[in-house]
């Protein structure tokens, strides 16, 4: 085949471009889940929150013509849905994992139900930032078309890492998440901190959903999310509750998603189901790797129910 080296170059470009394009929902959901888990709770319902955010954001953009308003509404819808999780989990002897699964199913079901009228219309998309102007190659230009939400997500990851480490509320959040007794002794309202943590996580996940529906792939239908919300929860464990590592892990997952299509377009078609399964395979492999019995889960909040 002629031009093989050009093809390999373009696979690389496609994987990098794909990593940037596909990673944003993972990034937002994993940052949200990091906040929630740092407060000592697991919200497995973020897949439902993501889908709900995607639907409400798309619907808002269709109705008002304002994609950024859609992002805001998506965040608020996610926050509201997560508030349900937080309030239910504040009740005594409620298992947050079980509530999360219920919320997952409820959120997707509600979004499918309310989203029926919005499958057909087209919504305006969020604008790009063109960072590839310096290159003559249209491939590079397209790969470096970056969405504002990706940039916001990156800044948010840095900010969150800093805030968790050095600010007062970061410390409070970590205390509540690490030891209920200590937090109680210090006089913090545990339920309130956790409620706020869960709601903030839901807001970010909702925004992550709006990226799916308003930018990439930029549509609303019932197959829109292929489990990004669930994988992002697994990704948090792999990233050891560290926002910066969440960013890298999201890029990795995005690149894995882009690998299959990129290889097929240059004519490598063997085992495409395997490439297609790459993100899921990666989730499994990373979880197995990070759950080795010889190492403790460093960085894991002490009160998170998977550690108790």
């Amino acid at each position: 085949m002629e031009g093989t080296d050009i093809s390999w170059w373009s696979v690389l470009i496609a994987v990098i471009g794909g990593a940037i394009r596909v990673s944003t929902p993972y990034l937002f959901v994993s940052l949200g889940e990091t906040i929630t888990e740092k407060s000592g709770r697991v919200n497995l319902g973020l897949e439902g929150v993501l889908v709900m955010g995607a639907m409400s954001g798309y619907a808002t953009a269709v109705l008002t013509g304002e994609p950024w308003l859609g992002v805001l509404v998506a965040g608020c819808a996610g926050a509201l849905l997560s508030l349900v999780h937080a309030l239910v989990c504040n009740l005594p002897r409620v298992n947050d994992i079980a509530v999360g699964i219920a919320l997952f199913i409820f959120g997707t079901g509600l979004a499918f139900f309310l989203g029926k009228p919005f499958i057909n219309p087209s919504a305006p998309r969020l604008p790009d930032i063109d960072l590839g102007w310096w290159s003559a190659s249209p491939q590079v230009q397209s790969a470096l078309k970056i969405n504002m939400l990706f940039v916001i997500g990156f800044v948010l990851a840095l900010g969150l890492a800093w805030a968790l480490k050095t600010t007062r509320w970061g410390l409070v959040l970590r205390t509540v998440g690490d030891s209920e007794e200590a937090a109680q002794a210090l006089g913090y309202n545990i339920a309130r901190v956790r409620t706020l943590g869960t709601v903030a996580g839901g807001f970010l996940s909702g925004v992550g959903g709006s990226y799916l529906s308003l930018y990439y792939p930029g549509t609303w239908n019932e197959g829109l999310s292929s489990g990004q919300g669930l994988m992002a929860v697994a990704l948090v464990i792999f990233a050891r509750w560290d926002p910066i590592r969440c960013f890298y892990a999201s890029l990795l997952f995005g690149g894995a998603t882009a690998l299959g299509p990129a290889l097929q377009t240059v004519g490598i078609t063997a085992n495409y189901y395997l490439y297609g399964a790459a993100p899921y395979f990666l989730t499994l492999a990373l979880l197995i790797y990070s759950s080795s019995p010889k190492r403790a889960l460093e960085g894991a909040p002490g009160e998170v129910s998977i550690n108790r």
Partner: peptide
């Protein structure tokens, strides 16, 4: 949809 968009771009 994500894979279809990615494939189209590729």
């Amino acid at each position: 949809p994500v894979k279809e968009a990615e494939t189209t771009n590729s």
